[in-house]
């Protein structure tokens, strides 16, 4: 079998292994160098910069997107914070306004009450003064009426009433 292989191999390739056939070396080396130069030129001029640019661009896009997302997130947070602050402010303001209004109303109320009380007190005093006057007037009138009546009664009974004693009696009675 090996003999066959040797014979056929030897027949086919002449000098054994084609790899060791020195006559084809210049050809292979020449075309290899041409190929490598062509590949190198294509790669370094066109392909590699392009792929590098695409990769960089993708990286840039991803970075940008992430940055944009971060920024949007920050902005949203900011907006939320501003909203919260506005809410708190508004609440505080509202509370303040309510308090103020309450205080104002209280003050007004107090003032009115005081005024009303004062008025009431003044009227009460006036009324009492009036009543006292009326009372005084009335007792004078009663005294006069009682003196007159007592004089008349004494006169009618036939006695002669001394004005001074009648007055003293009436006064004593009135007091009594």
């Amino acid at each position: 079998m090996a003999d066959t292989a040797v014979e056929t191999g030897a027949e086919a390739s002449g000098a054994g292994m084609p790899q060791l056939d020195l006559s084809t070396f210049p050809n292979q080396i020449f075309w290899l160098v041409v190929t490598l130069v062509v590949i190198y030129l294509i790669l370094s001029r066109v392909a590699l910069p392009r792929i590098g640019a695409v990769l960089a661009e993708r990286q840039g896009t991803i970075t940008n997107d992430i940055a944009a997302a971060e920024e949007l997130k920050a902005r949203a947070k900011e907006a939320e914070a501003a909203y919260d602050k506005a809410l708190v402010d508004a609440r505080a303001e509202a509370g303040k306004i309510v308090d103020e209004a309450k205080a104002e109303m209280q003050a007004e109320l107090d003032a009115q009450m005081q005024k009303a009380e004062a008025e009431i007190a003044a009227q009460t005093a006036e009324s009492q003064a009036a009543i006292a006057e009326i009372e005084a007037g009335a007792s004078e009138a009663i005294k006069a009426v009682a003196k007159d009546t007592a004089k008349e009664i004494v006169a009618a009974l036939g006695g002669k009433a001394d004005a001074r004693s009648v007055t003293a009696a009436v006064n004593a009675r009135m007091k009594g």
């Binding site: 079998m1 292989a5 056929t8 191999g9 086919a12 390739s13 292994m17 084609p18 056939d21 050809n27």
Partner: peptide
């Protein structure tokens, strides 16, 4: 012997 042929190195020929 009946016609089997091995040419394992023919493929490398230039």
């Amino acid at each position: 012997e009946g016609g089997l042929s091995f040419h394992p190195l023919d493929q490398f020929e230039v």
